[in-house]
Design a protein around this nucleic acid. Structure first.
Length: 911
DNA sequence: GAGCACTGC
């Protein structure tokens, strides 16, 4: 091990790095995979004494596995115990008093900043893999730039080291707001084996899967031993290619029958016609950029012929390993056959862990390993023994519409950096080759780097975290790359309507809306919500769930909504008739179980969220056995994650609200009928901006509105997803977890809402009419407020909503009603006995001619002067002045009673 | 009547 370490190129840079760290508060270290920076830099710092005096060297990683693995590796290299070199991730850690080097995920450090803004335990913080630009990394760098200067002022300097695998660091160095003086950048060589890159001469306009198939066949038939790694974009593609390859190179049967191959190809073409049509559409949009005919954009001298010639030179370097020359369809048959069986394995993130693990095993004796993977293999997982990479050049990414929040999945070209990262996977153990299924001209049109995540997704969760750190003006925060203003505004608006931020005052609203919008302070509710490590909409649900014993259920639902893909993928193409029968049976079983878990009546109205609750409840009841998951189509990994998240949320709720005394009950009973109703309301309150209404009189509309819903922000019809238990139910109002655009706009995670709940639970989205006279306003002794009935309409879309009882709106009329109830003795019962002696009827307060009577006028004025339109305000006024309102009240009663009233004033013992 | 890449608290 020590020998291995000595080979690392970074060791010759130790002095340069340590001098830079000594002289500068912030240092950037750039070195590709294989430079050893992650394992070595912490050791340099340790040896230089940066963890003396009980302080710690912190290292953040963007993934949990990396944090755990790195801590173990560094402990071993340094011959130190894991008590000294430790890790901390979301659910677990082995940090002790002795810990000096602490590896953690970036989110963990962000939480620590919430507890101790100055991070006083640390003398150095290393942000690893900063080039990946994950949202937490970006926010950490922004925060740390401030923490570094605060610590310098206190003469307790903190060192920040940003480590990046690429040289794309201008966002850090050229950003004056982030670092006033640009930090020094130290480059470290890497010790990778060379990878020869081969471009296709032509770029297939569609069917890159077929192109992958042909390329793998050729590599396998023509080239020496060594694993093959193929990059595709999704699960379905991965499975299809695996199947084709297995048929082409069956184990123990080396010769692939050519016609079989053809037939398969036709079959697949049929089957995936739809998805190809979509892919074609996506490609058509980008076609102008990649057209091989538009050479006019190239510099002079790089015309058609030159390019071909240049390519040929390039390819000549690849010598016998170059496969492009055989691109004329004469593959297979006449080529020399290696007769080597191909060991084909799929790999993607949602694949069961035991199946993922197969790619790390050596392939069976006498076979060649071929892994067909999605992007997981680009950064998250490293497969040993790969010598050949086949890269389709595409990636599937989630795309959010900034205005509507609708997400869709799009297949686009990767960036140059990603393509290089993929190529690098061929050079981990020996020199390798990368076959790119696109031309070098197309490659040169790729974006240089993928855009930072923070610019591609909603940011309400980040904004809430920042507000909890008392960063009010988020636009002024030194983001390495700032999110769009629309995204920031949308986040603040959502947080305001959830009650997590204070709404700007009405006066301000008129004047300087934009400015005040982006600097709203956090509310007490917002602080509570920020302690729950889930999306703000879900945090709101938790904050509401103390009532009626709903917490354990709300926690479970929120945990299940947070963990992705509860149900296993059963739609994959079957490899055999047996598998097909099995898949069909399992799909039927899952559909049946979903209906069972949804139940009947109000329970069914909770919809897909009831299914989540039922599934988790049943699974936990079974002890979360792999068998239970298997037969019911649940992903064991998802269920275990939900269990851990329930534990974490339970702890979080208990610490906000110790009297709840919650625990995770594996034998949780189903919620009662009334609890389900409360849960439905809790869910409605959290998902208020995700409300949809069944279209009215749809028979009059275009056919495209059949079974459709309307939402406030979308003009197009949206639909309940066919996998939803409410698919055929079509309730008048629903809330949904998300809308995904595929062939249509589909709502997923759907729950039914009663119309009368909307104005009561989502008042901030409703525009209310004047208070109704019938039923008349009343006084609520519990709230100490005047209530009334009001009709309303839902914002933007103007959906009419039924009149419901709400607080009487602020204004003169509210004082009048309150005065009346006060005189009637409803507010303070000790005043009730005087009622018969009043000189005027209390309802006089409400009459339009009330001003004719001085006693109504003076009472009203006195109430308005202290803003006393409810009991609490009145009590507050009496705390300041116990004689408050005495004279005004006495004006309503005969002189003879005044002395006794004065003795018993104020008429309450609640002060 | 369907088809979603990848991650962190």
């Amino acid at each position: 091990m020590q020998e291995e370490r000595l080979k690392l190129p970074i060791l010759s840079e130790e002095q340069v790095i340590m001098e830079a760290v000594a002289e500068h508060p912030v240092v950037i270290v750039c070195g590709e995979t294989g430079s050893g920076k992650t394992t070595q830099v912490p050791q340099f710092l340790y040896e230089a004494g940066y963890s003396s005096d009980d302080s710690i060297i912190g290292v953040t990683e963007p993934r949990r596995v990396a944090a755990v693995a790195m801590s173990q590796r560094v402990a071993k290299e340094m011959n130190l115990s894991q008590r000294v070199v430790s890790y901390q991730i979301r659910y677990e850690g082995n940090v002790t008093e002795e810990t000096r080097i602490k590896f953690m995920t970036d989110g963990v450090l962000l939480k620590e900043i919430q507890r101790d803004f100055l991070l006083s335990q640390y003398k150095v913080v290393i942000i690893d893999e900063a080039h990946e630009r994950s949202v937490y990394t970006d926010i950490l760098i922004g925060l740390l730039s401030r923490i570094v200067s605060l610590r310098a002022k206190r003469l307790l300097p903190l060192k920040l080291i940003i480590m990046s695998a690429t040289l794309r660091v201008e966002d850090f160095t050229q950003n004056q707001r982030l670092f006033a003086t640009p930090p020094p950048v130290i480059k470290v060589e890497s010790r990778q084996f060379p990878v020869t890159v081969h471009f296709n001469k032509r770029t297939p306009l569609e069917d890159y899967s077929g192109e992958c198939f042909r390329k793998v066949c050729k590599v396998h038939r023509l080239l020496p031993a060594g694993g093959i790694l193929v990059f595709l974009t999704g699960q379905a593609e991965v499975h299809t290619l695996c199947r084709r390859l297995r048929r082409a190179f069956p184990h123990a049967r080396p010769r692939p029958p050519e016609n079989e191959d053809q037939k398969d190809s036709v079959e697949e073409t049929q089957k995936f016609k739809k998805s190809r049509a979509r892919a074609r559409k996506a490609q058509a949009a980008t076609l102008p950029q990649i057209s091989l005919d538009s050479y006019s954009v190239l510099p002079a001298g790089e015309g058609d012929e030159d390019r071909e010639a240049e390519m040929d030179d390039e390819e000549a370097l690849g010598s016998d390993l170059d496969l492009d020359l055989a691109d004329d369809g004469a593959d297979g048959g006449e080529q020399p056959d290696a007769s080597l069986p191909l060991h084909v394995l799929p790999l993607y993130s949602l694949l069961a862990p035991e199946k993922q693990a197969q790619v790390f095993q050596p392939p069976p004796e006498g076979t060649r390993l071929c892994v067909v993977a999605t992007n997981v293999a680009e950064t998250s997982l490293t497969i040993p023994g790969i010598k050949y990479v086949v890269d389709c050049g595409k990636v599937k990414k989630r795309h959010y519409d900034r205005v509507t929040g609708v997400s869709s999945f799009r297949i686009t070209w990767v960036s140059q950096a990603s393509a290089d990262q993929r190529a690098g996977r061929a050079g981990r153990t020996e020199p390798g080759h990368c076959y790119r299924l696109y031309s070098s001209a197309v490659f040169s049109d790729f974006e240089q780097f993928p855009p930072p995540e923070i610019t591609r997704r909603p940011v309400e969760d980040l904004i809430l975290q920042m507000k909890a750190l008392n960063i009010e003006k988020v636009v002024n925060f030194p983001f390495p790359t700032t999110p769009s203003v629309e995204a920031l505004v949308a986040a603040e608006e959502l947080l305001i309507s959830l009650g997590a931020l204070q709404a700007p005052q009405k006066a301000e609203r008129a004047k300087q809306l934009q400015r005040s919008r982006l600097s709203c302070p956090i509310t007490a509710l917002g602080r509570t919500m920020a302690t729950f490590p889930v999306a703000p909409r879900y945090a709101k649900m938790l904050a509401l769930s103390r009532q009626h014993g709903c917490l354990p259920y709300a926690i479970t639902i929120v945990a299940a909504m947070t963990v992705r893909e509860l149900f296993a993928e059963l739609d994959r193409p079957a490899a055999s008739d047996d598998e097909l029968t099995m898949l069909k049976a399992r799909r039927a079983r899952v559909a049946h179980m979903k209906r069972t878990w949804a139940g009947q009546g109000t329970s069914r109205s909770l919809g897909d969220l009831m299914v989540l609750l039922g599934a988790v409840g049943a699974c936990e009841y079974s002890g979360c056995s792999p068998q239970f998951c298997e037969t019911n189509g649940l992903r064991l990994k998802a269920m275990l994650e939900i269990r851990r998240l329930r534990g974490q949320l339970t702890t979080a709720v208990n610490s906000v609200c110790p009297e709840a005394g919650l625990f995770v009950d594996p034998k949780m009973q189903p919620p009662s009928e009334s609890q389900v109703t409360y849960l439905r309301q809790i869910v409605t309150a959290g998902l208020g901006d995700h409300l949809a209404r069944r279209v009215q009189s749809e028979d009059l509309l275009d056919d495209k509105w059949r079974n459709a819903y309307k939402t406030p922000l979308l003009d197009d019809p949206v639909f309940i997803h066919p996998s939803s238990v409410l698919f055929k139910e079509l309730p008048d109002f629903v809330v949904y977890q998300e809308i995904v655009e595929t062939s249509k706009l589909y709502m997923k995670g759907v729950s039914a809402v009663e119309a009368q709940w909307i104005p009561a639970l989502l008042p901030s989205y409703c525009q209310f009419d004047k208070p109704l006279e019938e039923p008349p306003p009343s006084y609520c002794p519990e709230k100490g407020r005047v209530l009334c009935h009001r009709a309303s309409v839902f914002y933007r879309v103007g959906w009419p909503l039924p009149a419901v009882q709400v607080d009487f709106p602020e204004g003169l009329d509210c004082y009048k009603h309150f005065a009346r109830f006060l005189l009637e003795g409803q507010v303070f019962p000790t005043l009730a006995p005087h009622r018969g002696c009043l000189l005027s009827s209390p309802t006089t307060m409400l009459k339009t001619w009330a001003r004719l009577q001085p006693r109504t006028e003076i009472l009203l004025r006195a109430l308005v002067a202290e803003r006393a339109d409810c009991r609490d305000a009145l009590l507050a006024a009496w705390r300041k002045n116990p004689k408050y309102l005495l004279a005004e009240y006495c004006a309503w009663l005969p002189q003879a009673m005044h002395a006794n009233i004065e003795k018993a004033w104020p008429p309450t013992s609640d002060l």
